[in-house]
């Protein structure tokens, strides 16, 4: 435990008040990553308007860091051009959250992975 499990204020904020949580029924792109046996499953849904991401929603089964990373990732993506969203990496998500405990860094990886998978799913 100890410092390894200490979260930043931003992590707590996004965990307690997740942004863009929910579903898009007629999503243009969906990306799901993770595995229930590992304790993390992230699903990202995108709606596009021209070359822009007009809406994004997520659903996450996972720890506080996984939920916060998902939420933060959606705020980085919403309203962005698809070409810009493609450049978003786990480092961007982790940086936006301040810092993640080393053992939780994989949670930010998953958020970025789910996003890229959803972008890849766009028609």
């Amino acid at each position: 435990m100890g410092s390894n499990c200490d979260y930043t204020k931003a992590v707590f904020d996004h965990f307690q008040n997740p942004r863009n949580m929910g579903e898009i029924e007629d999503a243009d792109g969906v990306g799901t990553v993770g595995n229930p046996s590992c304790g993390d499953v992230l699903k990202v849904m995108l709606k596009v308007d021209g070359d822009k991401i007009s809406d994004v929603k997520f659903q996450t089964f996972g720890c506080a860091a996984a939920i916060a990373s998902s939420s933060m990732m959606t705020t980085l993506v919403k309203g962005k051009k698809i070409s810009e969203a493609k450049k978003i990496t786990n480092k961007d998500v982790a940086a936006a959250l301040g810092q993640l405990p080393p053992i939780k860094v994989h949670c930010s990886n998953l958020a970025a992975d789910a996003l890229q998978k959803a972008i890849g799913d766009l028609k």
Binding site: M1, N4, C5, C38, C63, A64, A65, I103
Partner: peptide, 9 residues
């Protein structure tokens, strides 16, 4: 999992 720093169930 996560609470015990070991990412294991």
């Amino acid at each position: 999992a996560c609470a015990s720093t070991k990412l294991k169930e």
